[in-house]
Structures are given as C-alpha cells and as structure tokens.
Design a protein around this nucleic acid. Sequence first.
DNA 1: GTACTTGCAAATTATTTGCACATCA
DNA 2: TGATGTGCAAATAATTTGCAAGTAC
Lengths: 153, 153
Amino acid sequence: MKEVSEDSIAKQRKLFDEFIRRRGLKRSAQRNTVVDIFLNNTQHVSCDDVYAIVRRRGLKIGYSTVYRTLKLLTAANLAQEVNFGDGVTRYDHNYNFNFQNHYHLICTLCGETIEFTSRAVDKSQKSIARKYGFTPQHHKLEIYGLCRECQAA
Amino acid sequence: MKEVSEDSIAKQRKLFDEFIRRRGLKRSAQRNTVVDIFLNNTQHVSCDDVYAIVRRRGLKIGYSTVYRTLKLLTAANLAQEVNFGDGVTRYDHNYNFNFQNHYHLICTLCGETIEFTSRAVDKSQKSIARKYGFTPQHHKLEIYGLCRECQAA
DNA sequence: GTACTTGCAAATTATTTGCACATCA
DNA sequence: TGATGTGCAAATAATTTGCAAGTAC
C-alpha cells in the first residue's frame, strides 16, 4: 500500500482550511483534532473509531462533533463514506485528487478487508461516466467473498 | 436494460426453495409473497418499498417478516445489499449466476441512479480476486457524481 | 408433535438535532 | 459583537429481537 507522505497530509489540511474559509465557517481545536486523526490514519475509520482515538489521547470531544467533522471532511471531498454491510458508516480517504483510487476485497466470513488499486478499473469508470454524460466525483468498488484463510477453514 | 424473463424468475424461485430445504427451513405464504415481489421487481428495493407493495396488494405481512425474508434472499445469494449513502439498505438482484453484473451511477444532487454493465470491469474484478487468492461471491461498483441534468442546472 | 415462522411491541444501534453556552473572526 | 461551534441529552430512523401463538412437514 502506498505510503501517505507528510507533504500530502499538509496539502489535504490546506484544502480543508480553504474549504472552511470558502464556506464562511470557522476553525476550532476540536475540528483540527478530528481532521488530524483522519488524515493521519491510513485506514477507513468509523465515527466510533475516531472517537476512541480522541479519548485515547486523553481529549474530550463530543460524539456529535466527531460526526459533524467527518461529514465536513466528506463535503470537502477529502473523505468518502463507505459501507461494508455491518450497519456502520466508515470514512475512507478520497484519494482522487492525488493518489490512485483504491478498492476493497471484503471477506464475508471473517470481515477482513484488503485494499487494492487497479488502473484497468479506473479507466473503465472514466469511460462509462463519459458515456452517460456523468461528471464523476468519487466511486467505490467492493468485492465480497472468501479470503484465502477462510477458504481453507 | 436487460429484461428479466419468466424463465429466469422461475429458476431463481427454484434456487430459493432449494436453499430453504437445504437449511431445514420451511415455506410459508408470507415468504412466497416477499420472494415473488423481489424477483418480479427489476429495481433495487428497500424493505419499506417491499412492505408498501405488500400493503398495496391488500395483504398484511409484518415489517420484521419482510426484513427477515430479504435477509434470507441475501443468504441464498439471490439478493445483495446495496447502500447509496442515505442510510437505507436496499436489496438488489444478484445476477452473478445468470446475467451480467450491473453497476450504478448515482447523482449526488438529485439521487437518480443509472444502471450499467461493463465487461471490462467484470474482467478486472476476476483477475484481482485471483491475484489475492480470494473467492468472489458478489461485488458492487458505484460511481457518484453529477448527472447530465444536474450539471446543466 | 416438533421445529420453524409470524407479528407485535419493545429493544437496540447508528445518527441527527435542539438548545444553552462557549468560541472564533 | 455576531455568527458559528460544541456538548449534552433527547429525538429520530433503521433494524433486530423476545416471545406467545400459529403453521408446515
């Protein structure tokens, strides 16, 4: 998996700040913390995950604030909601603007998720969007099945 | 969009009955109704949708029964859960065994969904699954963006 | 007859919202 | 100062579950 560089995080943080300004919103310690946690985490996180990290850091931020900030990150196009069928919304990085998009293999038995990238998939999606006169913002691909370990078992 | 033939519905119903039998479960009028509604509907439906159709037919089936039956259809691999980000789980046909898989373009402004198929995407997915020693059961691809109409507006 | 199914109401879970108070610009 | 943000608790929404009574095999 591609490493997330310091540079890229700084860049994304800048994008977020611009977004806040453009919307006439304000900065705050809580927002900074949540944005920081999200950007520095390479995995897709749930609101619960982020909240747990906040508390582990000894900080106290309301649950609603975490939710609201994750929604903001989504609106800013830095995050995207993903849903693996367990009823929990997760927030994944939206690498469109910078990295290659990544997709998921999800084991229906043990729940493990594997990330992968595919130029072929990326290309197909672009051509399909064009065909339907659609301006793509983000996309997701999930393959459900049995992982190597679970097949053996 | 490909038409769903009578034959295919009968075939899927048979698959469901086999599934029921294999699991030592039983048939019932309510289950038959829900399965019937699902199979004869070409669209992805929510539990609410199915419940509304049931009532429109003048029948009375409990909400939980509808939910439970849609879960059964998923377990039988005839349906698959999809989630377009509005907090509602929808059940889509799992055409794997018979048809070409189809995917979705979802307009983030008006919510319209367009279905499409793509041999290229299908192929990429197969090869990726193979690469990771993964046995795919089903997969979904969703492209979010602005539809033609919403771009103009 | 035994095990499975149903329908209701209650419980659970995830997420959102109202509002008083705090904070940023 | 005035608009926006926060945190709590309460509200909402979707889904699941317990249980008594009904039904399939």
